[in-house]
Amino acid sequence: MTTTQMQALASQVRRDIVRMVHAVQSGHPGGSLGCTEFMTALYTSVMNHDPKNFTMDGRGQDMFFLSNGHLSALWYSILARTGYFPVSELTTFRKLNTRLQGHPTPAEHLPGVRVASGSLGQGLSVAIGAALSKRLRNDPNLVYTLHGDGELQEGQIWEAAMFAAGRKVDNIIATIDYNGKQIDGPVDEVMPLGNLRAKWEAFDWIVLEMDGHNFNDILSTLAKAKSLTGNGKPIVILMHTHMGQGVDFMTDKHQWHGSPPNDKELESALSQLKETEGDY
């Protein structure tokens, strides 16, 4: 897929996100909008995966784990738009009997989802376990994850970081949505992360950085990350993003972490996002 095509898809995904959270007046638009380019690039042009043949054990394919499960609207849109399930199913988001639960879960057997996430800080450990299972069966495919920066305040993340380096788990590429915002305000006020690059380096991870809104940078950084796998070290990418990217009144505002737009705000948001592939 060309970056122009990715731009077009990303615009549609952003429309999906704001429409989904507006429809049920709940959900998390901020982080979802901020990670749209990353997820679009990952699922259309980076991962080795087969949407029509999803398997829980991911044998012979790359695997992805969304650790910050509140980005469910983004993930569901990406999964649907890349063929995991019908796009029309996005209408069921957060409604009774849906497979598209508020936070992702395999309990409803939605293709693409392998573990529940929502309670933060657990996805890195799970992804490391999946990476170990690949190592045990000599499967050369990789495991990708996405985490919030606020999520890094959870202690389990650093337990996992220590484990991955100590056990030389070098088939995993973790990405941090480094937008500097969390529910209660700026990350630096709520609980400062300090020198995040130095922290990961001190845990003996390879650290890369990229602009999460630039497809060329995302693609080249992920390509570089891929080339660095298999060398005895886990890899983390600090992805610089803006919460609420693509919708002017949401951009860089932590208040949009978990608030839905009202009717007027939806109209304004949609006027800024081109319908490229047809609304669900």
Partner: peptide, 12 residues
């Protein structure tokens, strides 16, 4: 516990 969950997902 998390790593164990991941290993189980991977079929172990």
């Amino acid at each position: 516990i998390g790593v164990a969950a991941g290993l189980a997902i991977g079929g172990k």
